[in-house]
């Protein structure tokens, strides 16, 4: 049988709904924030509770440069989106690639720090509570940076293949939203680990 139709109500003159992808991404970010919150709480809760050394004070060095890299990548990705909106393909490609570069630098930074901690200070995830909480918190963030970089790279490849059109800037912005989140989380992690934690 055919679907009954609803009474001929006159169409509301303006009927606009939020952009799906954006709502989805915001929800995801909320969920992720909760995960990070728990890890941050654990880190703070166990501050100074380690039974054996090394302690944060002894071994941690503030990664100013790499932090600047990551945070500035938020700007570059933002302007990348704007350039695409204005259909400046070249600018978009450049800024986008720059974003990936900066993100990559940050990962290298983390890698170097971990190498130093493991081989110079013998601090591993199983050494003490500090090791456990530090590597899992910073590691969780690094994992998100990596995931972000992979997605950014995919977009870059599409762009190079000329598949990213002007009208897709909203999708690109959705991805940018995730990247901003990753940066924001770093601000928190940085404060907790390198400022409060010492």
């Amino acid at each position: 049988m055919s679907a009954a139709t609803i009474p001929p109500v006159e169409m509301p003159q303006s009927w606009t709904l939020p952009y799906r992808a954006k709502v989805g991404m915001v929800s995801l970010i909320i969920a992720e924030s909760a995960i990070f919150t728990i890890f941050v709480v654990a880190y703070l809760f166990y501050l100074g509770k380690s039974i054996s050394g090394p302690t944060p004070k002894e071994v941690l060095e503030t990664p100013i440069f790499f932090t600047i890299c990551l945070l500035s990548s938020s700007l570059t990705i933002h302007f990348a989106g704007r350039s695409l909106e204005r259909n400046h393909r070249g600018a978009f490609l450049g800024l986008w690639a720059l974003t990936i570069l900066l993100g990559g630098l940050f990962l290298i930074g983390t890698g170097m720090e971990w190498h130093r901690l493991i081989y110079q200070h013998g601090l591993t995830i199983s050494t003490n509570l500090f090791g456990t909480t530090y590597y899992s918190l910073v590691g969780l963030h690094a994992f998100h940076v990596t995931a972000g970089l992979i997605m950014l790279t995919i977009v870059l490849l599409f762009a190079l293949a000329g598949k990213v059109q002007q009208d897709q800037f909203r999708r690109v912005d959705t991805l940018a939203l995730y990247w901003h989140f990753v940066d924001a989380v770093w601000v928190v992690v940085f404060t907790v680990v390198y400022i409060v934690g010492r």
Binding site: I35, I38, I125, T132
Partner: peptide
């Protein structure tokens, strides 16, 4: 999500010798 986070910690404890 807090449960997921706690589960991850538990796995770290059980497999990576976390505390």
């Amino acid at each position: 999500t807090p449960l997921s986070a706690a589960q991850i910690m538990l796995l770290i404890d059980r497999y990576l010798g976390g505390h």
